[in-house]
Simulated scan of single mutants.
Amino acid sequence: MRLKPAVFSILVTLSLSVGGVRADTITTDQVITRTTAAFFNCADYQVVGVCFWLYCTWTGCAIRTSAKVAHYNPELTMQTYRNAQEPPWTETRQFLALTQSDYDGSLVSTILSTMGSGLDELGGGGGSENKAASHSNMTFTLTDSFGNPVMFASSVASMSGYVCDPKLTPMYPYYISNLDTVSWRFGIPEMFYPESLNPFGSLLGSNSYNWGGYYPRIGHVTNHDEIKESGLIAFRSGHFITRRNQDHIYTSIYQNDSEGWWAPDPLTVSSGRWQQLAPKADTSCRTFPLSADMGPSDGLQSRRSDDGAHVWNLWRQYKCCQDRGSFLYDVEW
């Protein structure tokens, strides 16, 4: 199911304030600055092959070649948070209110009322014993995914033929968890998938060190470590956003290959790279789970926010060639 474009254009207006913000909030200009600061480390630009093109004019035809390049693009900026009234990305708050996906949104209130849930549960956080899907060892986290604003520059740079345009819309809301309340909060039908019934079949990590199972792809987790919970929630949403025809309300970013342009495969544990934007600003990318030291201090403390709000970039690899005629074939080494 696709989330139709609404009034997301209001988000394109950037905040240029330079005042300080709390560690658990971020502005659009900071998203741009921190994404750009990590570009050379995260993009991992490579020449991976050569493309062959047929170029014809009235005088005849010739075979032309161009380099096939590969690099990672910052596709989505994802925020995870427990307080529905204060998403960490400050410019998204107005949009969430306009789409009635904030704490007081009448659409979400109606859904929760129909499902027999009180509005006071919308904010996330710790669980309680009063609902079958809300046990005391569970927490509930909200998440939203927007097209990374730096893609404005990617579209322009792609005209050179040596930068692969991800063909996504900057600032577009590809996923809003509060508009996906039935699936994200109540796990319908995610809870009944075969993958969800096997607790060891979809671990984000290895058997010896992982952040939990990414099925069922819902907002409830039993991991009470803020950074691990946030990473798992971001991965769960990214897992279905990069696929088509999943049982959620979202806009898929899955794309088919075209001549001289190759889109990434759907997200897996090893294929996506993650950059934390808040509360810590990374200048490099890693796969989940982030490595941790053993002992009382695991080395991840600076990554944990005071209120459970975190912001991440998802980077995935694209491949492309400069268009030099009619595409024939490519060779990759």
Rank of each mutant, 00 (worst) to 15 (best):
N41C: 00
Q275E: 12
G308Q: 04
P166D: 10
I249F: 13
P264R: 05
L11F: 01
G238M: 07
F240V: 06
Y250T: 03
Y214H: 05
S196K: 07
P149D: 06
T268H: 09
E259T: 10
I111K: 06
M115P: 03
I10C: 03
I241Y: 02
I176N: 00
V163A: 14
C321F: 06
C61H: 05
M191G: 13
M138I: 08
R316L: 03
T80W: 04
I63S: 06
N223V: 10
Q317N: 06
S109M: 07
S136E: 08
T99Y: 13
A132I: 14
L112V: 02
A292H: 08
F192Y: 15
Y72H: 15
D24T: 00
Y215E: 04
R236F: 07
Q276M: 14
I241W: 05
D306V: 05
D247L: 09
T13L: 07
V311H: 01
R236D: 04
C61W: 01
R64Q: 13
P279R: 03
Q79L: 00
E229S: 11
G308L: 02
T25F: 03
V331Q: 13
R93W: 10
W53C: 07
W262R: 12
S271L: 12
D165M: 10
R324P: 06
N41K: 09
G20S: 13
P296T: 12
A43Q: 14
S15V: 00
Q85L: 10
D29K: 05
E195A: 14
G272Y: 10
Q317P: 02
G124Q: 09
N210E: 03
S145T: 04
H220I: 08
W274C: 07
V269M: 07
